[in-house]
């Protein structure tokens, strides 16, 4: 069973649909017992990072999630709140990943939000099994995780080279949306399910 953590951050439907297409069993939950029992935990998120962290703290999950021992996948804001700090709302994250979330500089060549398909490179590890560098994934964000030792994929937007994906022990996260990234995204989700 895969637990999709429902902590009031945006639409979870596309993540549900993606798991449904892969034939996976999942539940939407904010119940700590259910999350602890799950084989895999998905932490999606669309919206404001500071709000996301606040929601997690309110629900009591901020202490539980960093201590999970099963594979966890954060997506977008779900990635950002696992970092040390975000410039969005100047908020402290859960500190699983040893990096900081910054805002893209405004530039005519690299518009913000960074929205659309971009390529991932420097792929490292099982999350990208069977994939080539240069594969395209779908992004929608204005804040990005800086490069760090936990970086397992990179993407460039204008002058900013940032972490497309992160891994620390059993924690994985993508800044892009695998659930909206066509066949490439399905492969990544499938890889996560079979880690």
């Amino acid at each position: 069973m895969i637990a999709i953590v429902d902590y009031g951050m945006g639409n979870l439907r596309s993540v549900e649909n993606a798991l449904h297409r892969l034939g996976a069993e999942y539940c939407l939950t904010r119940n700590p017992q259910e999350i602890l029992r799950a084989d895999r935990v998905l932490l999606p998120g669309v919206g404001h990072a500071a709000q996301a962290v606040a929601n997690l703290r309110e629900s009591g999950l901020a202490e539980l999630i960093p201590n999970l021992r099963r594979p966890v996948l954060g997506i977008c804001v779900g990635l950002q709140l696992l970092c040390r700090h975000s410039e969005e709302g100047d908020c402290e994250g859960l500190g699983v990943f040893d990096t900081f979330v910054k805002r893209f500089p405004d530039s005519p060549e690299a518009k913000v939000p960074h929205m659309g398909w971009n390529s991932i490179g420097n792929l490292d590890g099982k999350l990208f099994r069977g994939m080539k560098g240069g594969s395209f994934v779908y992004y929608v964000h204005s804040f990005y995780p800086a490069l760090c030792p936990d970086t397992i994929a990179t993407t460039r937007h204008g002058d900013s080279l940032f972490s497309a994906a992160l891994k620390y022990e059993n924690f994985y996260a993508t800044q892009f949306h695998p659930e909206k990234s066509g066949e490439v995204g399905e492969q990544i989700l499938q890889n996560f399910l079979t880690l």
Partner: peptide
């Protein structure tokens, strides 16, 4: 559509 399409 949301269930059947895997792009935005």
């Amino acid at each position: 559509i949301a269930d059947g399409i895997h792009i935005p």
